[in-house]
Design a protein around this nucleic acid. Structure first.
Lengths: 342, 342
DNA sequence: AATTTATTTGCAATCGATTGCAGGTAAGGT
DNA sequence: ACCTTACCTGCAATCGATTGCAAATAAATT
């Protein structure tokens, strides 16, 4: 009804015949205010239906208590787990979280970054878009001393805390597992090489081949954007090789699923003819038939860690910080798509 | 030059020997400023590295150009589609979107609402949590004349624009389809009756039974929270009935999937022994085997419509608005889980 | 009783952009 | 020349909370 009548600290001050500064301090639990006055002020504020004007406070303090989060796609299970972790920490420490999705597009990511910047977020947590190879839009933040934390898809070119998962180890174990299942020609469908995560997964794959005494074959490695469609194209290419693969390690579950789909459709048995392992442990991976072996990433923990590191920086802006790159463990989940009876 | 700080409109004004008001107007493309001065001001602003202080503007205008979105779970495909729709519109009209998830918990939803309120969002778009039966936390907004738009899981008790999908029609068509496939005893696993969407789906189911000349049987209707676990419990109960069902219409895809999983595990053939239809068209529903027949909801369109209606209210605050409830169409997707050879 | 110390509170400037109203200027009309 | 009108621009108040510094009061010490 009467929304022109917001109570301010001045109204409270006037009513109690004290100054606005005292009211402000009391409401903020500033220890310099005596217990008695604080109680009185809180009671009166309550009675008068006072609600603090966050906008005024933000303006004055130049802080918004807001963390901006940019992820490629919020509906990816991994990312929504990370977001949940971030929210968990942020709420506890009194920060609000603004989530945006880049849809893996550089242009959208850039616009989001600008918006967050203009809205003066106190810090940013980001996993960059697949397309992103230029980082000017992210330089905005360091330039104004606004902390950034990168996770998963990190950027070498910017100095900041980075949380990555052990892509190398996950890929290594996945590939070793395929070798242990008796596979001799293990193919790899990987992502774009501008993203470290895919570089590392590929490196893990190659190392595992070497350690298993298997030769590497360029023809068995295909890089694309890991969509459903490209997964099918890739597997078709692999099946057309003179020497077909007997196992495929895919850098994400979507590709693994489309690969399996195509293999079964064209008459191959999974895992007996060709075993498949994916990456990320998307929820569907255990629901499909055959269920997909995959590598689990600790999304929730990554979110917690990212938010912790970010908030620490926000609260200690002056301090010189030693940036660190934290590697979170991954683990292999063996399911039907790779579990051969030996 | 005191410009280790941020450039303000006053700095620009001083440099050009004009007033801050003119600068402000020029930067806002206020038509009252002549073309010449506007160009000069924009150029100078650019040169001086001016960036508008959104916080100051927000404070002054009491507007944040921010829309708060509250959904149960962002990783549900339906909700992330809606969010994409909202973002699409919001971005175009210069609004920022803050997304939060309630995890289907009343308490979290309530905290989020308070945070959004304290942060002075200009409007809210929400689909309420499964638990929510009390709406005090949402009354905050109407009380301060902050518009809300409800979608999908709407609330009768608050007067506002509401966008719902045609749950009744979708359920009706799903059930009719099961009847046409020859099912005589069609069960229903539904959600909590405090949510309209589940009430309507159940009503559609019942009407379809009646129109198909099938008797209704209380024993064939089970209501729970539609989780995986509860889906399995429910189907166990149904299989223990003296007269088992030959089809099950589930109010979401998660339940449908767990039901199918359990049926196959216990030796039933889907769809031949028991046909199953879900609801929402989650991406996994077409990837699992058998793929799940389901009801598609136009999430993206709902997001667009919600944002349109909300922003219209934000921009025309004074106007009396006739609140409307918009019903969006649904359609049935027939897949393997219900496609019997007749 | 005088002085020091500790404890509370108030003053007043500030943050930067916005906007109603008044004042100024140039162009057009008589 | 004088007066309107239309068009630009400036003045100055304002939004509400925060905070460094000074001052007032109370308590403790000599």
């Amino acid at each position: 009804m009467s929304d022109r009548l917001e109570t301010t600290i001045h109204d409270i001050a006037k009513k109690l015949n004290i100054s606005a500064s005292t009211v402000s301090r009391a409401l903020k639990n500033n220890p310099v205010i005596s217990e008695a006055t604080r109680k009185l002020i809180n009671k009166t504020a309550e009675e008068m239906g006072y609600r603090p004007n966050t906008l005024a406070a933000n303006f004055r303090t130049k802080r918004t208590n807001t963390i901006g989060v940019i992820v490629p796609l919020i509906h990816r299970h991994f990312f929504s787990s990370v977001i949940s972790g971030i929210e968990e920490v942020a709420y506890k420490k009194g920060f609000t979280v603004t989530i945006s999705q880049s849809n893996d597009l550089l242009e959208k990511e850039s616009k989001i970054a600008q918006t967050l910047f203009a809205n003066r977020v106190d810090g940013v947590i980001i996993s960059i878009a697949m397309e992103t190879t230029n980082f000017d839009h992210l330089q905005l933040f360091p330039a104004k001393n606004i902390p950034i934390v990168f996770f998963d898809r990190v950027v070498d070119e910017i100095d900041a805390h980075k949380i990555v998962v052990d892509d190398f180890g996950g890929a290594y174990r996945a590939t070793r597992h395929l070798a242990e299942m008796g596979s001799k020609r293990i193919a790899h469908i990987g992502g774009p090489m501008n993203l470290n995560i895919y570089k590392n997964r590929q490196a893990g794959y190659l190392k595992a081949l070497a350690d298993s005494g298997l030769p590497t074959d360029e023809m068995l490695v295909i890089n694309n954007n890991l969509t459903r469609e490209q997964g099918i194209e890739a597997v078709q290419k692999l099946l057309n090789l003179p020497e077909k693969p007997d196992a495929i390690f895919c850098a994400n579950d979507t590709t693994a699923q489309s690969v399996i789909f195509h293999l079964i459709k064209t008459g191959y048995k999974v895992p007996d003819d060709i075993a498949v392992v994916g990456f990320s442990n998307e929820p569907f991976s255990e629901m499909v038939t055959p269920s997909i072996s995959t590598v689990r990433q600790p999304g929730f923990l990554i979110g917690i860690k990212s938010a912790d590191l970010l908030i620490e920086q926000i609260l200690n802006k002056q301090k010189e910080i030693e940036f660190q790159t934290i590697v979170m463990p991954t683990d292999l989940i063996i399911r039907e798509s790779s579990a051969r009876q030996k």
